[in-house]
C-alpha cells in the first residue's frame, strides 16, 4: 500500500521512499525516512495535495509524490 491510498485520519509506518532526484532528496530531508510513523490528516478541498503529520509537525505533499512512498504491511506497531 502506498501513502496516497491511506485514508484521512489513519496512520502508517513508512517502508520505502521512492521517486528520484531533488524531490526524493527533499522528502528524506523533511523526515520522511523509512520507519517513520506518518498520519494522513486531511485532503485539500480540490482533492490534492494531502496533509501529513509526522515527527511532531505538519507537512503537505502532492498525491503523485505520495504514491512513490510505500507503507509497511501487517499489524500496526
Amino acid at each position: 500500500m502506498t501513502l496516497d491510498q491511506l485514508p484521512p485520519g489513519q496512520s502508517g509506518v513508512l517502508d520505502i521512499v521512492g521517486g528520484e532526484g531533488a524531490l526524493r532528496r527533499r522528502l528524506l530531508d523533511m523526515g520522511l525516512t523509512p520507519g517513520t510513523r506518518v498520519t494522513v490528516r486531511k485532503v485539500a478541498p480540490m482533492g490534492d495535495p494531502i496533509e501529513l503529520f509526522l515527527r511532531g509537525y505538519v507537512l503537505t505533499i502532492r498525491k503523485d509524490d505520495a504514491a512513490n512512498i510505500t507503507l509497511k504491511k501487517g499489524p500496526e506497531r
Binding site: 531533488a22 495535495p49 503537505t60 509524490d65
Partner: peptide, 12 residues
C-alpha cells in the same frame, strides 16, 4: 526546467 517539488511545511 524542473518545478521545485511542492513539499511544504504547514506551520502552527
Amino acid at each position: 526546467g524542473n518545478p521545485v517539488p511542492f513539499v511544504m511545511e504547514l506551520p502552527a
